[in-house]
Protein backbone atom coordinates (compact mmCIF):
# COMPACT_ATOMS: atom_id res chain seq x y z
CA UNK A 1 0.00 0.00 0.00
CA UNK A 2 1.37 3.46 -0.82
CA UNK A 3 2.03 6.11 1.79
CA UNK A 4 -0.93 8.30 0.85
CA UNK A 5 -3.59 5.64 1.09
CA UNK A 6 -2.06 4.35 4.30
CA UNK A 7 -2.18 7.82 5.83
CA UNK A 8 -5.69 8.32 4.57
CA UNK A 9 -6.85 5.10 6.17
CA UNK A 10 -5.15 6.06 9.39
CA UNK A 11 -6.90 9.43 9.26
CA UNK A 12 -10.34 7.88 8.76
CA UNK A 13 -9.82 5.43 11.61
CA UNK A 14 -8.48 8.07 13.93
CA UNK A 15 -11.35 10.44 13.23
CA UNK A 16 -13.88 7.66 13.78
CA UNK A 17 -12.26 6.83 17.13
CA UNK A 18 -12.57 10.47 18.26
CA UNK A 19 -16.31 10.37 17.67
CA UNK A 20 -16.69 6.90 19.13
CA UNK A 21 -14.86 7.83 22.32
CA UNK A 22 -16.92 10.99 22.69
CA UNK A 23 -14.09 13.49 22.26
CA UNK A 24 -15.92 15.03 19.33
CA UNK A 25 -19.56 15.28 18.40
CA UNK A 26 -21.54 16.21 15.34
CA UNK A 27 -20.71 19.91 15.69
CA UNK A 28 -17.15 19.13 14.60
CA UNK A 29 -18.62 17.60 11.43
CA UNK A 30 -20.56 20.84 10.94
CA UNK A 31 -17.29 22.78 11.10
CA UNK A 32 -15.73 20.50 8.52
CA UNK A 33 -18.69 21.06 6.22
CA UNK A 34 -18.04 24.79 6.35
CA UNK A 35 -14.49 24.34 5.09
CA UNK A 36 -13.99 24.59 1.34
CA UNK A 37 -11.46 25.72 -1.27
CA UNK A 38 -12.12 29.36 -0.46
CA UNK A 39 -11.56 28.63 3.26
CA UNK A 40 -9.14 25.72 3.38
CA UNK A 41 -8.03 26.42 6.95
CA UNK A 42 -11.37 27.14 8.54
CA UNK A 43 -11.38 24.22 11.00
CA UNK A 44 -7.80 24.80 12.13
CA UNK A 45 -8.51 28.51 12.57
CA UNK A 46 -11.62 28.01 14.70
CA UNK A 47 -10.01 25.26 16.75
CA UNK A 48 -6.93 27.43 17.36
CA UNK A 49 -9.22 30.16 18.69
CA UNK A 50 -10.77 27.53 20.93
CA UNK A 51 -7.34 26.57 22.28
CA UNK A 52 -6.47 30.20 23.05
CA UNK A 53 -9.84 30.85 24.65
CA UNK A 54 -9.76 27.66 26.72
CA UNK A 55 -6.33 28.37 28.12
CA UNK A 56 -7.40 31.86 29.13
CA UNK A 57 -10.60 30.56 30.74
CA UNK A 58 -8.85 27.75 32.59
CA UNK A 59 -6.37 30.27 34.01
CA UNK A 60 -9.20 32.59 35.01
CA UNK A 61 -11.00 29.70 36.68
CA UNK A 62 -7.91 28.65 38.58
CA UNK A 63 -7.50 32.20 39.85
CA UNK A 64 -11.20 32.55 40.69
CA UNK A 65 -11.25 29.33 42.73
CA UNK A 66 -8.19 30.37 44.70
CA UNK A 67 -9.74 33.53 46.09
CA UNK A 68 -10.51 33.75 49.76
CA UNK A 69 -14.11 34.72 49.07
CA UNK A 70 -15.12 32.89 45.97
CA UNK A 71 -17.44 34.72 43.60
CA UNK A 72 -19.46 31.80 42.28
CA UNK A 73 -21.23 34.00 39.77
CA UNK A 74 -17.90 34.82 38.24
CA UNK A 75 -16.85 31.18 38.26
CA UNK A 76 -20.14 30.24 36.64
CA UNK A 77 -19.74 32.92 33.98
CA UNK A 78 -16.32 31.50 33.03
CA UNK A 79 -17.69 27.97 32.91
CA UNK A 80 -20.63 29.20 30.86
CA UNK A 81 -18.20 30.63 28.33
CA UNK A 82 -16.15 27.47 28.32
CA UNK A 83 -19.26 25.39 27.76
CA UNK A 84 -20.26 27.64 24.87
CA UNK A 85 -16.91 27.50 23.11
CA UNK A 86 -16.47 23.76 23.58
CA UNK A 87 -19.95 23.10 22.24
CA UNK A 88 -19.27 25.40 19.26
CA UNK A 89 -16.35 23.28 18.11
CA UNK A 90 -17.89 19.95 19.16
CA UNK A 91 -15.54 19.13 22.04
CA UNK A 92 -18.18 16.98 23.67
CA UNK A 93 -16.37 15.71 26.74
CA UNK A 94 -15.22 19.20 27.70
CA UNK A 95 -18.75 20.48 27.25
CA UNK A 96 -20.20 17.66 29.39
CA UNK A 97 -17.69 18.42 32.12
CA UNK A 98 -18.77 22.08 32.06
CA UNK A 99 -22.39 21.04 32.66
CA UNK A 100 -21.36 19.14 35.81
CA UNK A 101 -19.12 22.03 36.84
CA UNK A 102 -22.01 24.50 36.68
CA UNK A 103 -24.10 22.34 38.98
CA UNK A 104 -21.37 22.54 41.61
CA UNK A 105 -21.27 26.31 41.09
CA UNK A 106 -24.99 26.44 41.85
CA UNK A 107 -24.43 24.54 45.06
CA UNK A 108 -21.39 26.71 45.85
CA UNK A 109 -19.61 23.41 46.37
CA UNK A 110 -15.92 24.31 46.41
CA UNK A 111 -14.60 20.74 46.51
CA UNK A 112 -16.85 19.81 43.60
CA UNK A 113 -15.72 22.88 41.66
CA UNK A 114 -12.03 22.16 42.25
CA UNK A 115 -12.43 18.56 41.11
CA UNK A 116 -14.37 19.70 38.04
CA UNK A 117 -11.76 22.26 37.13
CA UNK A 118 -9.09 19.58 37.22
CA UNK A 119 -11.22 17.26 35.12
CA UNK A 120 -12.10 20.02 32.67
CA UNK A 121 -8.39 20.76 32.32
CA UNK A 122 -7.65 17.10 31.70
CA UNK A 123 -10.42 16.77 29.14
CA UNK A 124 -9.26 19.92 27.42
CA UNK A 125 -5.66 18.72 27.19
CA UNK A 126 -6.85 15.36 25.90
CA UNK A 127 -8.99 16.82 23.13
CA UNK A 128 -6.31 19.35 22.25
CA UNK A 129 -3.74 16.60 21.80
CA UNK A 130 -6.18 14.53 19.77
CA UNK A 131 -7.07 17.44 17.51
CA UNK A 132 -3.42 18.35 17.04
CA UNK A 133 -2.70 14.76 16.07
CA UNK A 134 -5.60 14.87 13.63
CA UNK A 135 -4.36 18.09 12.01
CA UNK A 136 -0.89 16.59 11.88
CA UNK A 137 -2.21 13.61 9.96
CA UNK A 138 -3.97 15.98 7.58
CA UNK A 139 -0.72 17.79 6.93
CA UNK A 140 1.10 14.55 6.29
CA UNK A 141 -1.52 13.49 3.77
CA UNK A 142 -1.31 16.83 1.98
CA UNK A 143 2.50 16.77 1.98
CA UNK A 144 2.45 13.29 0.50
CA UNK A 145 0.35 14.71 -2.32
CA UNK A 146 -2.96 13.19 -1.25
CA UNK A 147 -6.26 14.76 -0.34
CA UNK A 148 -7.85 14.61 3.10
CA UNK A 149 -10.75 12.13 3.12
CA UNK A 150 -14.15 13.68 3.75
CA UNK A 151 -15.74 12.19 6.83
CA UNK A 152 -19.21 13.56 6.20
Amino acid sequence: MDTVSQLQRQFVEYTASLYREGYLDDQFTQLQKLQDESNPDFVVEVVSLFFEDSEKLLNNLTTALHQENIDYKQVDAHVHQFKGSSSSIGAQRVKDMCVVFRNYCDEKNLDGCVVCLQQAKNEYILVRNKLEALFNLEQQILQAGGSVPMMV
Binding site: L31, D36, F42, G84, S85, S88
Partner: peptide, 15 residues
Protein backbone atom coordinates in the same frame (compact mmCIF):
# COMPACT_ATOMS: atom_id res chain seq x y z
CA UNK B 1 -18.90 38.44 22.24
CA UNK B 2 -17.24 35.09 21.57
CA UNK B 3 -14.67 35.24 18.79
CA UNK B 4 -15.20 31.54 18.10
CA UNK B 5 -18.91 32.03 17.59
CA UNK B 6 -18.37 35.13 15.47
CA UNK B 7 -16.08 33.16 13.22
CA UNK B 8 -18.61 30.36 13.03
CA UNK B 9 -21.66 32.49 12.30
CA UNK B 10 -19.72 34.54 9.77
CA UNK B 11 -18.77 31.40 7.87
CA UNK B 12 -22.33 30.01 8.08
CA UNK B 13 -23.77 33.22 6.68
CA UNK B 14 -21.14 33.58 3.97
CA UNK B 15 -21.71 30.00 2.89
Amino acid sequence: DSIIDRKLIERLLKT
